[in-house]
Each structure stands twice: as C-alpha cells, then as structure tokens.
Design a protein around this nucleic acid. Structure first.
Lengths: 387, 387
DNA sequence: TTCATTTAGTTCACGTTATAGACTAAATAT
DNA sequence: ATATTTAGTCTATAACGTGAACTAAATGAA
C-alpha cells in the first residue's frame, strides 16, 4: 500500500529529491536546485544546509560563471562520510570493493582462488578476511559503512543461495557464515552486474545484461530500475528453450540455452579444458573453437530473440565470460537477431560487450548501498536533531 | 525524477491513501482507516469528509458490530459521481462498457461485426456510435466521465496502433478517427485484459495473461502492476521461438509460437474454417482437431517455459480463443511445463482459463480510468475549494 | 571610483497540514 | 442508572514549505 505522508516523511522525501538532483546533475547551486525541484530557494537552502552538516553534500568553491550577479556556491556529493561494501564470490576469485557516496572507489581487492574446489564455509572464511581488511581501511579513512551486498552466481531468495552451478553449492546462507559486523544482503550476480552497468557504465537506462558463466543469467534494467519478477527469480536466460528436442539440461528440460552456450558445452565443443585455453585457441584460429563460439552465438541469438519479444529490449550487454568471447560471439548473435527481429519490430537491439568486465558485480553491489543512502538520507541527519 | 513534496501534494497523497484503503479494504470506519494508514483520527476525519463531499466516498449505515462502544460509521466507494469508459475492437465484435468508481457496470453493449472486412474509418465510425450511446446513458445517470481507454489487439505506442494481425490494419491512430468528447487512450488488448483479470478476477497479484487470437500477446502483472517494458511493447509471446528451424513467420523469423498456436495455424491443422467450427470438431472428437490442439498446447508449453524462466511466473491465465480451447489445451501445456520446469524451480506455474472471457479487455480498459481517479482524487475536490 | 543592475542566498512572518489530547456521542455491561 | 468502551469531532500546537523582504557579491556603465 502507498504510505501516508506526514511532516517528517515530507521532509525526508524532499531531502531525497535534493540529494538525487545533485547526484544526477553534477555540481549545482542552491538556486539551480530550487529551479530544478520546484521548491523555493529558502526551502532548498535549509535542506542543503542539513545535508552539508550531515556530511552528505559538500560545497565546492564559488561557481565562477563570468556572468552578471552574485555567483552561486555549487554543492556536490561528499564522499567524506558514508561508504558501502560490495562483495563477490566468483568461480575463480573473491572480490571486495568500498565505494564512497560519490561512487569513488576507496578500497578494492581481489583474491584469485579456485572456489569450485572448496566448501562454502572455507570460501566465506576467506571472504571474511578480505572484507575485514576493507572494513579496517574504511574505518581508517573515517568513513561509516552503511551496508554490504554480496554477489553470487545463481538464484537467490530471502538471503538463501538456492543453487550455484558455478560452485556446486546448494541452499547456503552466506551472510550467516560470513559473520561481518555490518548487515550483508545477498543478490544475484547478474542482477548486481546489471546495476553496475546502469550506474557506472555508459548511462543507458534500458538494457538486458547477460552474464555468461557456467550457468547463464540475466539482469533486466527498465527505465533505470531492476526488474526481478514476482519472487526475484527472473532472468534465467540459461533455461530459455532454444531447441525443444535438444540435449538434456540439468534443469530437467531439453535444449535450454545453457546446453549450447553454457561454459561446459562451450569448452566441450571447443575442445578446450578452460576458458583461457579456449581463448588461446580462438586467437590461434582453431576450427573447433571457432565453430563452438559460432554455434553458441547462434543459440544465444535465438534465446535473445525470445527475450526481446517478451521484454521489449533495445539494448543487450554481454558480460561474464561472454565479454571476452565477444569478438567471436557478436557476429552470429547479431545475425540471428537481425534475421528474426527485422520484420515487425524496427531495428534489432544494439549489442555490446560489458565495459566494466569483472568489476560490474562489486560495483553494482556497493552501488546498491550507495543508492539506498541517496534514496533515504534522513537517518544520517539524526545527529543534527541531537545538537 | 522523484517529485518534491509540498503541502498540497502531501494532502493529495493522503487523500489517495485513504481512498485506496477503502477501495481495497471494503467498508471501513474512520477509526479503522486511522489504524490502517497510520494517520490520526482527526486527519482521517478531515480527509474522509472531503472525499464524501466530493462524491467519491459514501457513508453506509452505522456498522452494527454488536460489540461495546459507539459503533463506527462505515464508508465505501461511491459510484455516484465518476464513471469511466472502456472500449474494445476485436475481430468479430465491438464492445463498450461504463464503470462507476466502485467497479459497478453502468452500461455495456457489444455489436457483433466482422471487422476484418472493414477499413479503420468504417469500424471506428461504428464504435463512435456505440460509445456515444454509452456517453449519453452515462450523462443521463448524472455521472462525470473521467476518461476512456480503447483496447486493440496488436503492438501500440504513443496513440498509434502499429499493426493489427487480427484486422490487417497498420499504423492507425484510432483516437483521431473516433472523435469522442473525452480523451481516448490506446492500449494493447492483452495488457488491458491482464489488468481486467487483476482488478476483476480472483485477486491474484502476479500472473501472465496470455491472449490467443490471430496473433498471441501477453500481459504481465507483477505485484499488482503491469510490466510493459522500455517502450511498452513487452509481451509479444507469439514470437517467442519454439523451434528455430520451424515454419516461416510473418515477423521474418522461423518457428515462432504463432506459427504453431496462432489462429491460422490452429485452424489449418485442425481442418476447420473458423473457431466455432474447430470447437464443434473438438466436441465431436475429430482426430485432426484434437491433434491440432495438442500440438498447439505443446508449443505453447515450450514458449511459456521460456517465459517462466525469464519472468519468474507462478501463475498463467489463458485468455482469448485459448479460454474456449482450454479443455483441450491445458493438458499438453501443463505436461510440458511440468517436464521442463520440475527440476531447479519448485512447482511449475498454476495454469487456468480466464474467468472473465471476452469481458476482460473492456473491464481492464475502464478499470484503468477508475484506478487513475483512485490514485489521484485531488482534482475532483476542486469544487470544495471554490465553495 | 562609484553606483545601478543582476543574481545568490538568508531571514522571518505566514499559511497549510498533520498531531495530540480533550471532549462529545453512542453503544454495551454491570 | 451508571461505568466502560469505542467512534468521531474540536482546538491548540508543531512541522514544514512559501513568499517577500533583505543582505551579499558579482558585472557593467558612467
């Protein structure tokens, strides 16, 4: 239900509006903010004052416009108070990243490690060490950690990782094993990487991010926000049917995209033992590797055709392993999309490789906390009340 | 951007909250509303008073609870002031429906007509006549028409019907040809029927409504609101790929669902000249008709498997022609869904036939206007200011 | 140099809205 | 009859944004 508005929530909302405008619109003077938000100069002055006092906004020097009249003082987001922690468990590395409110990276670390070989407790112990380092450093910088988000590859719900095809895990509660002094939220890697591309990529507000790993996931961003379905399990692109009579899939079905373009299928068809080996073979021009990628690309094109028709996509970003394979995948994928979508729809969707590569997930994870603070800064003004 | 809140918009929002609570929660006393919304009794009293004055709420008799204490006076939505107009152009009929704010039907009419044979101008002229009747009747009842929505089968954007496979139309602006004294909005039949099921069906808040006509569309409802994609073209279930090397489709692709379960394919395979003929053959137990339905059902099952994986569906409603074919379709569809989704996901989605049948679209269309009034009742209080 | 002009930002009396609690109203229980 | 309980109204008050007056700080013209 829509919530009732009271005086305090009116204020909270207007703080959010001002902070959001600064966050999107770069440095802005109070006068510009008043114009932008429709609030009066006096109201904006009060709100900005509180946000500056709280350490969420900072005044930069006077804006030298060279024009007539008193120059305004511009304010920007301040990275001096709040920080957020992004965590990721991937097949072959662990990663942490600390962002401040401006989106600036304050700490980042990555530990290469074959996590396939380890049980959850072991891996999360390792991640705990890495995260503790990050928290120590954040504390040293005088920053307050507003929260943490952990990215894992696989379907997630209510703090539980139901299954992780990459790792062979099932029904794990990572936050419980991680035991960090800040609350840790869990989300799907594809969803978080999609948010990473949204907030730190090239500014597009509508796209499908495809994460190619052992499984194939996807995160859909529509009008600047994530679509996750009724129970948060949307985006299982890997089990979209590509050929109804195709190979059996671990999901119980047949001919799912994963059986053609999942990492296992790809390596088997390409006669390579690992992704680096496959890449080397591709660079070298080996026929089986090239044909494996072409076939995977065509299958991906078919699955994406279905996705475009269902979801109305005009932009698709390939991430995960697909980012590295992009030069060999993009041709077949585009051909299939153009052939199948050219008719009724206008142009086929624009295809591109992820610009953030392996950083997308931790950026999205930490970014989610930053955006939560931006969306509700009121709790951080509490100390003003006390003074 | 999120809008700034001022005193008037705070009031507008709280009016919406109260009205929404009554609309969902049946008859409610002021005291119950205060509890429900978190507002104080005095605030609720003022808001309810204004809404009653505006003719949007009405007091029913005192609530006889038989319990201690003064019985509260219950208020309900009032159907005495605002009405909305829902319009539909289908292949073989035109329909109009007038709803009041309570969702009660105040007028309904349907004109059987083979619209395939006619040009847009002719059909919309006919619809104009029908709509005028509806408006006259509405006026006679002393109701104010808050708006009209027209349902058409096919992709729609910005007031333009891009193509209508049912009718053979292309790039039509129905509102311009319709020339009604109220603004007419245009939307996709599948989307509006989905909203009809949401508001007038069995109260589920998450489902996919599948509309089987000449083309096959779908409307996705997530958490009580419609998902329409970046440009409003989501839900083209008919062009989800079922067999990559299947028959050529009018969209330029191959093996789309439409080539297996669209009306043309269905009638051809079933050796029937029309849907009634096909139904008769099915009732009679004719082999080609039964097999045609089974094959269409299996194809639909495959397409829905992809949809479930992408959209995280737990409930699917079959509408349009599929409602009538449901007894013969549901078996094959369910079997395919169970076989393909049993593994990773828990239970397969629940399948059902539309309960509203052909009324879903006009109900959704008119309901959309009703819900717009409920979501922003402030404009209807204007006369209170003037008094 | 001086002063009008222009734009930025602050201050303060005021209006709108929700709040809290006293008060009235209308029922049941004793 | 009277206490008790719950519903709804009334009134003084507080929170917040508004608008106009005011101060501040720049440019430009005389």
């Amino acid at each position: 239900m829509t919530q009732a508005v009271r005086h305090d929530s009116m204020r909270a909302r207007n703080l959010e509006v001002v902070l959001g405008a600064v966050s999107r619109g770069g440095p802005l003077t109070r006068a510009a903010l008043a114009e932008l938000t429709g609030l009066t100069k006096s109201t904006v002055s009060k709100l900005v004052g509180d946000l500056v006092d709280a350490g969420l906004l900072a005044e930069t020097g006077p804006a030298r416009a060279g024009e007539r009249g008193r120059p305004g003082v511009e304010v920007v987001l301040s990275g001096a108070r709040v920080a957020s922690l992004g965590l990721e468990i991937n097949v072959d590395y662990l990663a942490v990243r600390v962002l401040d409110l401006t989106g600036g990276v304050r700490f980042a670390a990555r530990r290469e490690r074959d996590n396939r070989a380890s049980r959850p407790k072991k891996v999360l112990g390792e991640l705990h060490a890495l995260a503790s380092e990050a928290l120590t450093e954040t504390h040293r910088l005088g920053l307050e950690v507003a929260g943490a988000v952990l990215a894992v590859s696989g379907p997630v719900g209510d703090g539980v990782l139901f299954s992780a095809p990459n790792l062979g895990w099932q029904d794990v509660r990572p936050a419980d094993l991680l035991r960090l002094p800040v609350p840790v939220e869990l989300d799907n890697e594809a969803n978080l990487a999609a948010l990473g591309e949204l907030w730190f990529g090239d500014g597009e507000r509508d796209f499908l991010y495809v994460s190619g790993e052992v499984g194939i996931g996807a995160g859909l961003v529509v009008n600047g926000s994530l679509f996750s379905g009724a129970r948060g399990l949307a985006g299982e692109l890997g089990h979209v049917v590509v050929a109804p009579e195709g190979p059996a899939c671990r999901c119980g079905g047949r001919g799912c995209l994963e059986t053609f373009a999942g990492q296992e299928a790809l390596l088997a068809a390409g006669q390579a033992g690992s992704v680096p080996a496959l890449l080397a073979a591709l660079e070298h021009g080996d026929e089986p590797a090239l044909e494996a990628c072409a076939a995977a690309g065509r299958a991906l094109g078919v699955a994406l055709t279905s996705a475009v028709n269902l979801l109305d996509l005009d932009r698709i970003v390939l991430g995960g392993v697909f980012t590295q394979l992009y030069p060999w995948l993009s041709g077949p994928v585009s051909e299939v999309l153009s052939a199948r979508l050219g008719g009724l729809r206008g142009a086929p969707p624009v295809l591109s490789a992820s610009r953030l590569g392996g950083d997308a997930a931790t950026l999205g994870a930490a970014g989610r906390v930053v955006h939560r603070v931006l969306a509700d800064p009121a709790p951080f003004l509490a100390r003003v009340q006390e003074a």
